[in-house]
Nucleic acid binder design. Structure first.
Length: 492
RNA sequence: GGGCCGGUAGUUUAGUCAGGUAGAGCGACGGACUCUUAAUCCGUAAGUCAGGGGUUCAAAUCCCUUUCGGCCCGCCA
């Protein structure tokens, strides 16, 4: 049947309903119970006594007519339940409304709960109310909607027909709720900082650009929440966090979407050691709370979140797994490191900085092997403009990244709070950006520098990648399965 | 940006290798049916075979191209 014909048929049904004096889109409907509650009521009753005057509402997902008796299934946000319609008790006229219903319509039903001959908990309808007429057909009921492109473009259809998908996003919601709760319990205060900024700083990434007309000013979408959260520590709050969207103008793949969700937190008088313990505790207890276990399966691997996670020195592991000593005299220069990389079979792009090459070594040879929850410790200062140097090694900063399933899920520092050194680091970033003509170096944020010149306490800071964590905990191999509306190309 | 794979009715798909009237299930429409639950039974309609171009007597099928999606690589805190 042509698409237009299906649509026309439903318009006809809509008009027939109106002709019968039925409003297909009433303003409201009061239900007495959800489907889950209604089911519970009957389960608690020894006899089927007193379960009358029940009013339910939901979407029609199944309709089976046997002439004078019809069974249907309605679904609401919690679950679904069978309802029955009997022509002899409802009357021919009311019963005939069923003829103008389609799968996908929302209806309200009032009646009594009972069990059918096959013991199915069912509502016997006395009154049927049309709540919303749907004009387009539902996806196929048995196989569901499989076409990946349509699942992403029309996520509502995906949610209607695929229960596993509904479960994933419910899990995501619970994950964020629980994370928020645990942070509050630890004494952190949730804040909101600006999304549109005059300078997109605080990470190494290419920003999205936009324009504010009234101010006649170029603004950037934030690539991190870091620098504004730190301003709040200058302002005197001890523990702040933000769960929010950040935007990076880069490629898309299984673990990258141009907008994604992070939680960043900053704790005065903490450092990267205390932050590491917090990450372990947060994630293992979220897994325990939501899944009842700290061991999850991801891409065929059993991943155990139980603390303590393995802690590995970055420099040591690069030496061991990549065969490159980042701080040997010959590797200290960009040309030297490039040569060592080529010797090891790596292919560094032309015109890249020492930090970018070091990052490639780590990304190619170290990160993919970090399947179990692991912390990589102590990064070269060139790669990390916002972290404080280690006391005993000026080449390294107190930074860790957390990895699970080969993906980076956490990044944390003992935050640099020396404003003079911070300014020098930013100047170095600016210089590198000019030298290598790459957008992804960090930027100097003068306003931020002025802020910390007023004094920011010693601080442990953290960024968590929410999307990737949800991937691991729900066993999804692509980030698009955990983002409701992932970025896709335009159809035009 | 490069490579590979894919797009067939509302939906799930067969058919593509080897060119010859595009077929089925669900859904829709008409009919039967008071215990179904992927209801069943009888009947009917429904297709820009992603778009465009080419080869051929003949193209869903072969070739070129555009587009969208997937996977991999590159890029990427």
């Amino acid at each position: 049947m042509a698409k237009d014909e299906l649509f026309e048929q439903r318009i006809e049904k809509l008009n027939r309903l109106r002709d019968k004096g039925i409003d297909p889109y009433p303003n409201s409907f009061l239900r007495s119970h959800t489907t889950v509650e209604a089911r519970a009521i009957l389960e608690e009753l020894a006899e089927n006594q007193g379960a009358s005057e029940i009013t339910l509402a939901g979407r029609l997902v199944s309709l089976r007519s046997m002439g004078r008796l019809t069974f249907a299934v309605i679904r609401d946000g919690q679950g679904q339940i069978q309802v029955s319609f009997e022509r002899d008790s409802m009357g021919t006229e009311k019963y005939s409304v069923l003829k103008d219903l389609d799968l996908g319509d929302f209806i309200g039903v009032k009646g009594e709960m009972y069990r059918t001959k096959t013991e199915e908990i069912t509502l016997r309808t006395q009154e049927l109310t049309v709540l919303t007429k749907s004009l387009r057909p539902m996806p196929e009921k048995w196989h569901g909607l499989k076409d990946v492109e349509q699942r992403y473009r029309q996520r509502y259809l995906d949610l209607i027909s695929n229960e596993e998908v509904r479960d994933i996003f419910q899990f995501r919601s619970k994950f964020i709720f629980t994370l928020r709760l645990l942070m509050e319990e630890r004494g952190f205060m949730e804040v909101e900082t600006p999304v549109m900024l005059p300078v997109a700083a605080g990470a190494m990434a290419t920003p999205f650009v936009t324009t504010h007309n009234a101010l006649d000013r170029t603004l950037f979408l934030r690539i991190a929440t870091e620098l504004h959260l730190k301003r709040l520590l200058v302002g005197g709050y001890d523990k702040v966090f933000e769960i929010g969207r950040v935007f990076r103008n880069e490629g898309l793949d299984a673990s990258h979407n141009p907008e994604f969700t992070t939680m960043e937190s900053y704790e005065a008088y903490g450092d990267y050691e205390s932050t590491m313990v917090m990450v372990e505790e947060l994630l293992s207890s979220i897994a325990q709370k939501l899944l009842g276990t700290r061991v999850v399966e991801f891409q065929g691997e059993k991943i155990d979140f139980t603390p303590p996670w393995e802690r590995i020195s970055l420099v040591e592991v690069v030496k061991e797994w990549a065969g490159i000593d980042l701080f040997s005299s010959e590797n200290k220069t960009a040309t030297g490191l490039r040569k060592s990389m080529i010797d090891q079979g790596l292919n560094p792009a032309e015109g890249t900085s020492w930090a970018q090459m070091a990052d490639k070594i780590i990304g190619d040879l170290v990160e993919p092997k970090l399947i179990q929850p692991t912390f990589l410790l102590d990064y070269p200062v060139e790669m990390t403009p916002l972290a404080k140097s280690k006391k005993d090694d000026e080449n390294l900063v107190e930074r860790f990244e957390g990895f699970v399933g080969g993906m980076e899920i956490a990044n944390a520092f003992t935050e640099l709070n020396d404003p003079i050194e911070q300014r020098e680091r930013f100047v170095f970033q600016e210089k590198s950006r000019e030298e290598f003509a790459k957008e992804e170096f960090d930027r100097l944020d003068e306003d931020f520098l002025v802020a910390i010149e007023h004094g920011m306490p010693p601080t442990g800071g953290l960024g968590l990648g929410i999307d990737r964590l949800v991937m691991v905990l729900t066993g999804q191999s692509t980030i698009r399965e955990v983002i409701l509306f992932p970025q896709l190309r335009s159809l035009e």
